[in-house]
């Protein structure tokens, strides 16, 4: 693994475990609206990568089309990025990770990019359990085309001009759980602590980590009557647990009273610590997860936090039994069969 970086870290700044300061995880200057939830998510991604000591050279950033999908340009400028076509990022990510399974991938999509044009590819990405982090920056509307409803908009939610949404929303988390995703979370761009912990946990998970992050559109969907406005989400967020993340490389003893926390140990040895709030929520129980998310939504609330996790299911690269080295890097000696093989094949046809 290479750890080459751009500029040397400026003196006096906090360095992470691979000796980089946070500026080395930044990207280009955002062109999204001031106050856009997506920018907050980019910030959390930058922090998470810094805190985990991620090697940016080992990260692929992918996106579809829309406001959300512009954001990979605004973090990790030292990582290769691919702003693909509308709704089709999952397939590009699939090909990319099959070509090099040693890379980590962060995919950024939107609620239209995933829930409408891209629902087919989303479904099959979840089924395959491709090892990547898939983030939906969910604001319930199409920002880049000036505010039309998206499929995650709630019944009765209104547009700025008063138009009422009369179709039921697609709950991407319920879909992801049903379809076989192995890490499903919902969070809020304004919930710094929870989102940060979830992102680090997602990056440490081996399998598809799907995060639906409610991310208010300050320009087109932040008004009274919208169920995706900043104030609505802030008031209706219902965390299932108080969540923290302990990376494998930090030797921290977790102190807690008996029966007040759950711990979920991830593939790399990192731990998610869930401190009980009102109820004892078990994110490894699929049926329970589906019930809780549905019930909460029925009350007009958003259950947030780690909704479901399965650390044991095989990821797609394992299912395909790929060699350890990246397929893209295999030398011709390993990919072109010998003269004898061709002769044998010709003999079969005689």
């Amino acid at each position: 693994m290479t750890t080459s970086t751009g500029a040397a870290p400026s003196p006096g700044r906090k360095l992470n475990r691979i000796g980089l300061d946070v500026s080395q995880y930044r990207g280009g200057k955002t062109t999204l609206c001031a106050g856009c939830g997506h920018n907050a998510i980019s910030e959390r991604i930058i922090e998470a990568c810094f805190d985990l000591g991620v090697d940016a050279k080992k990260v692929l950033k992918l996106s579809g089309i829309g406001c959300s999908s512009k954001s990979p340009a605004y973090f990790l400028s030292q990582s290769h990025g691919f702003n693909s076509v509308h709704g089709r990022m999952p397939s590009v990510a699939t090909g990319a990770l099959l070509a090099n399974k040693t890379m980590a991938a962060i995919g950024i999509s939107g609620d239209g990019d995933t829930g409408a044009i891209g629902i087919g590819q989303f479904v099959h990405l979840m089924r395959r359990n491709l090892p990547m982090v898939y983030i939906i920056e969910d604001n319930g509307c199409y920002g880049l085309t000036k505010g039309q409803f998206s499929p995650t908009a709630d019944v009765g939610s209104t547009l700025k001009n008063g138009v009422v949404n009369d179709l039921p929303p697609i709950d991407t988390c319920i879909m992801a759980i049903e379809l076989g995703a192995t890490f499903v979370a919902r969070s809020f761009s304004g919930d710094k602590k929870q989102l940060s912990a979830l992102l680090k946990a997602a990056m440490s998970h081996k399998g598809t980590a799907m995060l639906d992050v409610l991310s208010p559109c300050v320009t087109f969907n932040d008004h009274e009557g919208s169920t995706k406005s900043y104030s609505y989400v802030k008031d209706h967020e219902e965390p299932l647990a108080d969540l923290s993340f302990v990376p494998y490389f930090e030797d921290i003893a977790i102190e807690h009273e008996e029966g007040t926390t759950r711990e979920v140990v991830l593939h790399d040895g990192s731990t998610i610590v869930l401190r009980k709030l009102d109820h004892d929520y078990d994110p490894t129980n699929k049926a329970e997860a589906l019930r809780v998310v549905r019930e909460t939504a029925g009350r007009g609330e958003y259950a947030t936090g780690l909704l479901f996790i399965d650390q044991h299911k095989r990821d797609f690269c394992t299912t395909l039994n790929l060699v350890d080295e990246p397929l893209a890097a295999l030398p011709v000696e390993r990919t072109r069969p010998s003269r004898a093989v061709l002769e044998l094949l010709m003999d079969h046809q005689r």
């Binding site: 692929l60 992918l62 290769h80 691919f82 693909s84 076509v85 089709r88 999952p90 397939s91 590009v92 990510a93 699939t94 090909g95 990319a96 990770l97 099959l98 070509a99 090099n100 890379m103 087919g120 590819q121 479904v123 099959h124 690269c317 395909l320 039994n321 790929l322 060699v323 350890d324 990246p326 397929l327 893209a328 890097a329 295999l330 390993r334 990919t335």
Partner: peptide
């Protein structure tokens, strides 16, 4: 190792099939 030096995926449609090809080629496969 008994492992595959290839990945073959039956995609959900032709759009996904070519998307995977483009993703893989982008990474150098």
């Amino acid at each position: 190792t008994g492992k595959a030096t290839f990945a073959i995926v039956q995609a959900e449609d032709e759009i996904a099939a070519v998307g995977m090809v483009i993703g893989a080629s982008w990474v150098g496969a």
